[in-house]
Design a protein around this nucleic acid. Structure first.
Length: 586
DNA sequence: GCCGTTTTCGGCCCGACTGTTTTCAGTCG
């Protein structure tokens, strides 16, 4: 089992304990342990074999034992027994808003309700409304929750969520009563998916702001409406929360609700070590009762300054060592999206793209890029009209003449997204591949191999002399399918050893390789290229999502291949393809 | 279940909101 599998088990344990009515702090310890595991930089195998698991803050004797057992045997006796002791239907009931462990237990005990289906019947029959502590409204709310659960998935792509958030933010900022307004939460931290939208507003007069917020266009349901906090659900299923705080609290609240939880814990601890108490209300001496004498700040930067820290950008607030880096002045100079000078890995009508070579070139030029590169599918991707050797060679000469025509100022690099076959060999002849400027090697078929086989397969493709970049490392589709299992560390090492780039596939549904791996990989010397995988001109915009990944992965400009100028790219490609004359001619 | 320079027990964030109550419990973030 790998880190994320084990983290899943820890989270499931937490859920089961919750249903059983265990001590909430014990539950939190498991959830905390799961998060720690997911953000762990070190190799889990190393930590287990070196006996260093115990040194991770948050892992005590019990968690070390359980994680070790899961890692070594792939199962956990404690977990199996726990599962047997809880009706599985109860767990899924937790997904309904407004239902927690206590209400679920109560309904199970009094009415025998043990699944969402039974719960629905119990609500409709009026049995739930008659329970002590329940009522008509509760039953209605549960029914609505069941309906919503069927209608919408629970999380949303950052890309989609941000589209919804932008006009809300603009709307808030244009209200005369609003002093300052911002989005917060995972949306602001630019996580790949977000659960809901959080907004923080500083104002002395919350009422008209709340009125506007709940009356927005597209609001399907107002799920909470108070003086300082309101929640709405949009027709798309997205939920948005608004908090209005007095102007002097705005930056404290913004920082608090931007999170992450781990980051906040670390910040509070740091405040405490300085005799201060930090919360969404302010920063005050520990021994004072309220925040009336809080420090005054006029930006988040001020808050970090009070704690003797460099400013930590929201993207980095994941509790992954950013405080330590901010303390010692070792925060990275993060990649700026403006330094992207061109993009690779894009499709045209030659395979499954929607736009022609010229349309794509024009669009790239309009974006001010110095170059862009085609990478249509190879023939094994039959469903995508993949190119065989002959069609690849035809496309190369087409691109050659387009470049020579000087019709566009943007230069076109010829590439291909070559399928990595089941055994790790590539789908096209080596001579064809070496005639291209670059090759993105990707897996699209036989994705159910074991981790060991898949790792070997990827490494073999990386070792192929024609491979320039490795495409979407795990093949994951966010919110839809897990990626295939692969030993990331071994693949990264192989890429470094062979001078191969691993792409950040910037398609908002992929964002693969994941940001969690980048800091460590880049430290070891891995380069990336932020590739939009565009299938139409609008998809060039995906670069922004890829830049988010790079920034969350602590990458700076020097780690990103497509910040190079067109001449630098030609030189880099020419190194691997010394026989290609056109790469030398500038 | 974790943690500890007031350390092996007792605290772990706590306030807003809702719906049920008539002073509070449960949920949420």
């Amino acid at each position: 089992m790998d880190k994320s599998d084990i983290a899943d088990v820890l989270n499931e344990i937490a859920t089961l304990l919750e249903i059983k009515g265990e001590n909430p702090f014990k539950i939190r310890a498991y959830q905390n342990g799961a998060r720690k595991l997911e953000t762990l930089e070190e190799d889990l195998g190393d930590l287990v074999s070196d006996g260093k698991l115990k040194e991770v803050a948050g892992f005590g004797d019990a968690l070390v034992q359980k994680i070790t057992e899961l890692y070594e045997t792939g199962s956990l006796t404690f977990f199996e027994k726990l599962k047997d002791s809880v009706e599985p239907g109860l767990v899924s009931m937790l997904e309904i808003p407004g239902l927690g462990a206590k209400k679920i237990k109560n309904m199970h005990k009094e009415l025998g309700v043990a699944s969402i289906e039974e719960l629905k019947i119990a609500c409709e029959s009026g049995a739930v409304a008659e329970l002590k502590g329940f009522g008509k409204k509760t039953a209605e709310k549960i029914l609505l929750g069941i309906e919503n659960r069927e209608a919408y998935g629970r999380r949303h792509l950052w890309w989609d969520a941000f589209e919804v958030a932008k006009p809300i933010l603009d709307g808030l900022q244009s209200l005369p009563e609003v002093d300052s307004a911002s989005h917060a939460g995972s949306l602001r931290r630019k996580r790949e998916t977000v659960g809901d939208l959080d907004f923080i507003v500083g104002s002395k007069t919350p009422k008209p702001i709340m009125d506007w917020f709940v009356a927005q266009e597209g609001v399907k349901e107002v799920t909470a409406r108070g003086e300082t906090k309101s929640s709405v659900r949009f027709e798309s299923g997205l939920q948005a929360d608004l908090r209005v705080v007095p102007p002097e609290q705005f930056y404290f609240a913004l920082h608090h609700f931007t999170g992450s939880k781990d980051h906040n814990v670390a910040m509070r601890q740091r405040a405490l070590s300085r005799g201060m108490s930090l919360s969404e209300w302010g920063l005050k001496p520990v021994d004072e009762d309220d925040f009336s004498n809080s420090k005054v700040i006029s930006s988040e930067e001020d808050l970090f300054k009070y704690l003797d820290l460099e400013y930590v950008l929201p993207e980095l607030r994941e509790g992954a060592g950013e405080i330590e880096a901010a303390e010692s002045g070792k925060l990275p100079q993060l990649l700026d999206g403006k330094s992207i000078r061109g993009v690779f890995h894009n499709h045209t009508t030659a395979s499954d793209g929607r736009c022609s070579l010229e349309e794509m070139t024009k669009a790239a030029q309009e974006r001010g890029w110095e170059y862009w590169g085609t990478a249509d599918h190879s023939k094994a991707s039959f469903q995508a009209n993949g190119l065989d050797d002959e069609r690849v060679l035809e496309q190369i000469s087409l691109i050659d003449s387009l470049n020579k025509s000087r019709k566009f100022s943007t230069y076109v690099f010829s590439g291909v997204e070559c399928d990595i076959l089941t055994d790790g060999s590539l789908d096209l002849d080596e001579s064809t591949l070496m005639s291209l400027d670059y090759v993105v090697s990707s897996v699209h078929i036989s994705m159910t191999q074991t981790e060991e086989d898949m790792t070997k397969r990827l490494i073999r493709a990386i070792e192929h002399p024609a491979t320039t970049m490795l495409g979407h490392l795990t093949g994951r589709i966010l919110l839809r399918r897990e990626g295939y299992k692969v030993d990331v560390s071994k693949v990264v090492d192989a890429a470094i050893a062979n001078g191969v780039i691993i792409e950040i596939n910037a398609n908002p549904r992929r964002l693969d390789m994941d940001w969690r791996f980048w800091r460590r990989a880049a430290d070891k010397g891995l380069m990336t290229s932020i590739n939009p995988d565009a299938h139409r001109i609008e998809h060039f915009d995906f670069v922004e999502a890829g830049v988010n990944v790079a920034r969350k992965g602590w990458l700076n400009e020097s780690h990103v291949f497509n910040t190079l100028s067109v001449d630098e790219v030609r030189k880099a490609f020419a190194k691997r393809r010394p026989a290609l004359g056109r790469l030398k001619a500038v």
